[in-house]
Each structure stands twice: as C-alpha cells, then as structure tokens.
Design a protein around this nucleic acid. Structure first.
Lengths: 191, 191
DNA sequence: ATAAGCGGAATGAACGTTCATTCTGTTTAT
DNA sequence: ATAAACAGAATGAACGTTCATTCCGCTTAT
C-alpha cells in the first residue's frame, strides 16, 4: 500500500518552516501541525529530525540539477556554457526561493558540516559539471589558472549573494540585470 | 569596582565557542566554564544571552574597521583603493578566523536578522567606504554601472567564499594567490 | 451481505533532556 | 560590618522522542 502523501506533506512543511524561520523556528510539533499530521506520525517516516532534514536536503538538491542542465550544450564554447549554467542557476534560485533559503540555512548549520566537504570536492552533480567546465577552460587558456575553489568562489559567490539580495527585496533582478551580472562573473574568471 | 577582566573573559569564551561549534554548541554554562566563571556571573555583565551575543558582534565588527583602513589613501585611483580595501579585508579574515567564523554564524542566525538590513543598506562603517568607492568609480566610468548590491556581491561574495575555503583548509592562500584573486574581483567590477 | 476480527498506520499525551535564567548562600572588598 | 560580587544549584520552559491507545480499511466467518 503506497501512501507517500503524508510523507510529502511532512517534507513540504519542513521545507517551508525552515526556509521561513530557520531551524530554530521549526520544531517537530510545528512541522507536524503544518503538515496536518500528528507529532508521532513523522517518526513513522523519518527515524529522527536529523534524518528528516538531510533527506529533505537531498531531495531539494536533486531537483535543481535537471533545471540547470536543461538546454546545456556540452560542445559549446566555454564562455557560452558558463553563461548558460550560471544564468540557469541564478534563475533557479530566484524562482525557487524556498529551496534557496533552505539550502542556505542548511549549509550554515550543524547539519551541513559533512556536506561542506563533499561540496567543495565537487561531489555534487552540478558542481561536477562546473568542475569539468573550468578544467577545460583552463586547459584551453580561456579561463584564469586558479585552483578550483577560487574559480568556484569567483563564479558562485556573487550568484549566491545577488540571489539573497533579490529574495530579501534589496534589488529587483530582471532579465537584463541577470545577464549583465553573469557576464561580470565571467569577466572575473576569464583570462 | 571596575573589573572588566571577567567581562572580557566571558566575551572571549563566547567568541571561541560560537566560532568553533556554532550557536548550538555554546550554551551559557559552557561559556561560563571556559571563561572560568560561574554561570550566574554572566548575568551581572549581560542582561541575557541575546544581548551578550549582539554586544560581542558589535565588538568584533568594530575591530575590523581600523585594520582595513590602515594605509588607505582616499585620493588614490579607484582601482588601487579597491585592491587595497579588498586585500586588507581578505587578509583580516584569514588572520582572524575566529572573528570571521563568528560573524558568518551570526549572519545566518535569528540574531542576525535585524543586522541584515543595516548591512545591505551600507550602515556599516566599512560598507560605507566601499559604497563611496563604488559610487565614484561608477561616476568616473571605471566601474560597471550596476546597482550597489550587485557591486557588493561581485566584490565581497568571492572574498567571503575564499576566506571560508582557506579557513576550512581547502585552499592555501598565500600572498600571490590573494593578490591574483582580488585582481580577478576587480575584473568583475571594472568596466 | 453482514459483522466480527485483524494488522498496521496514526495519534498526542507523557517523558527525559537540555538550556537560559533565577535564587541562595558564600566570599571579597571597603 | 556591610554591601556588592560571585559560584553553582535550582527552576521552569521548550524541545525531540516514545509509547499506549485509537482509528481505519481489509479479510474472514457466518
């Protein structure tokens, strides 16, 4: 008897509450409440809170990858591929602000410690694409010869920052501004 | 009876614990312990934990400003001033990793909500210097004509990211790499 | 066709733990 | 001698988790 309905409600409620109020503002009782479910029910689907949250993280992370890769042409020039990936990533963040804010919370929390390592080592799927892109860019001499973490920082640091600013309402990113911002990031990494 | 000695021990202990283990890993009893002080004593110096932490934040923030401004020449060209400020900032972060990690924790916590707004509006002292620098850079046509938050993102996003990577041990920033990284940030903002 | 029986899903009150804060008795400075 | 400073035990609120009980849909017996 497959009844994933309640499980999904729990995951959705957790995502919303954590994105909106942080981990402090999302006790299990409140998650249960918003999911329309008894407190104990959560434990039929998740062993404990840690596993609920890491599971949620995995789901959220998995959703972003297809969105970013849509229309990606592996044979295109490095610059074009960079612009495509980065634009898609930024667009995904501002169109899915709940996911974005949750992931940010997650990374700056005790839950995220173990994932930090994987992340920087490029274990993540989308990181892997970026990694390959940068490596071939460096090999072709069109990208500055930096260690990978520096290239990630130059490319992704500003993206995360402007996404945050947009979601918090400090800037209004439209198509033109997005394009120009991503091109500025390219200026940082291109030789 | 002026005895700022205990107060300073409390502040120092709080900084260390929060930087190393996050807010979850820094209960009042533990702070008291590391400060060599009774739990109740903290409350003779700070009304409650929130005020202890916001006070600590203010102190930490205040310390960075002089370090960044040392040797700053307001009459120098925009590019030089940018390189000076950014290099000093990055150097400060990696030489004061406790402070850096604490500030990062702070900004991604309930305590930091109110400060977010001030920060992005440039209320902070060092932000103010950057703001003036960008404005005159745009006016002179040497800096891309972006809204200020985007310029901040392009300049500071990568700095925070590489500082984090360095402190976590994923890269080893030496003088050469620091200089090159900051120059890459300049490439992002310069016209 | 109906009702009794059955198993797992669901529930929420209760429990134990953790933590910030307060209280109380003691030490220390004047 | 007095009052402020101090340490650490006591307190109560909040939280994650557990568990005895209820609920619900399906099977089986009549």
């Amino acid at each position: 008897m497959a009844k994933p309905e309640k499980r999904d409600e729990i995951v959705r409620a957790a995502l919303e509450l954590i994105a909106e109020h942080g981990f402090h503002g999302a006790p299990m009782a409140m998650i249960a409440d918003r999911a329309g479910v008894g407190a104990g029910t959560i434990y039929r689907y998740f062993e404990n809170k840690d596993l609920l949250i890491t599971e949620l993280y995995r789901e959220v992370e998995g959703r972003s990858f297809p969105a970013i890769m849509e229309g990606y042409v592996p044979e295109a020039p490095v610059r074009e591929r960079f612009l495509h990936l980065s634009t898609a990533l930024l667009r995904y963040f501002i169109n899915n602000s709940l996911e974005f804010r949750f992931v940010e919370q997650f990374h700056n929390s005790p839950y995220g410690v173990e994932f930090r390592r994987e992340r920087l080592l490029g274990k993540m799927e989308d990181r892997f694409v970026y990694r390959e892109l940068f490596e071939s860019g460096v090999a072709q001499g069109v990208v500055k010869d930096f260690p990978l973490p520096v290239l990630f920082a130059l490319a992704l640091g500003p993206i995360l920052a402007v996404a945050r600013d947009h979601i918090l309402g400090f800037i209004a990113l439209d198509d033109v501004l997005i394009t120009r911002t991503i091109e500025a990031c390219w200026d940082a990494v291109r030789r």
